[in-house]
Design a protein around this nucleic acid. Structure first.
Lengths: 143, 143
DNA sequence: AGTATATAGTTACCATGGTAACTATATTGT
DNA sequence: ACAATATAGTTACCATGGTAACTATATACT
């Protein structure tokens, strides 16, 4: 993600939005402001994850397995159901997570197509260690 | 960008955030909710731009030139100042925009290092045609 | 003048997002 | 039973984000 460094609200909104949607520029300005703030928040999270050999996606894959009640594993397609990400991207993420010993991946006994994914001791430790910082970043309103 | 399809507020926040920041889970939940909403908005914008042979970055490059007061051109490094994007990414975007006849790019007379970038008739027409839809998407609160 | 530094842009390389098309296996329906 | 369809995951390819290191030019400093 990227964003305008200078907020576009002044010149751009007045110049364009008012022409198309007179009287509604405030709503547009709010949305642009929000986009910018969450872009900054996203970037902070990305940097934080990167410093721990993770990414947004790698983190979320581990999280949805960890937080699954009753079971200590998920099928790949179940992760795909929970995250809004394309199959090839998830497939690659799973491979690199397994390569980094953050996931174990094995074929299911019942369904030979399906992959059973579980956390490893490494990833359990990693999750525990990064969660406080993760919530700390979320707690701070983006500026 | 991607995001959790199911909001994590219920299971995840209670399970984790409350443990680290008791009493502050509402703030965390709000941020996660905001991240999700703006991820959806971002994706709508991306899809809209893609349907017009643009991207967020390509659109913003054209916009900052168009909205520049007094001048009908910008130097590449001026665009870099206005957008929070790395130099190589901007460099590539400029090349493909020029290839698509949406920008003219020529060396500056005074400074042989600098690129002077201007809109073309095509990109002026394109901007005019997509701006109403752009603001329409911004106007609608993401769901 | 001539060296050192700063600035503008590019190249090379990698990570992460997408779609389309593919293989392999399961399920459905006759 | 077996053909048709659906599902699980992969491969191939492309777009877009980043950093590090490079070239070329301009500016600053003896």
């Amino acid at each position: 993600m990227f964003f305008l460094k200078e907020l576009p609200t002044q010149s751009m909104i007045k110049q364009y939005s008012e022409a198309y949607f007179p009287g509604q520029t405030e709503e547009v300005a709010n949305q642009l402001q929000g986009l910018r703030e969450f872009s900054i928040l996203l970037r902070k999270l990305e940097d934080y994850f990167a410093s721990h050999n993770l990414s947004q996606l790698r983190f979320l894959v581990l999280m949805v397995i960890d937080r699954e009640p009753e079971r200590n594993y998920l099928y790949a397609h179940e992760i795909a159901e929970r995250l809004d990400v394309s199959k090839p991207v998830l497939s690659r993420a799973i491979k690199t997570l397994a390569k980094d010993s953050l996931l174990t991946s094995k074929k299911d006994n019942q369904d030979a197509r399906a992959l059973v994914l579980s956390l490893t001791p490494s990833s359990k430790t990693l999750l525990k260690s990064i969660l406080p910082g993760y919530f700390q970043i979320l707690k701070n309103k983006p500026t």
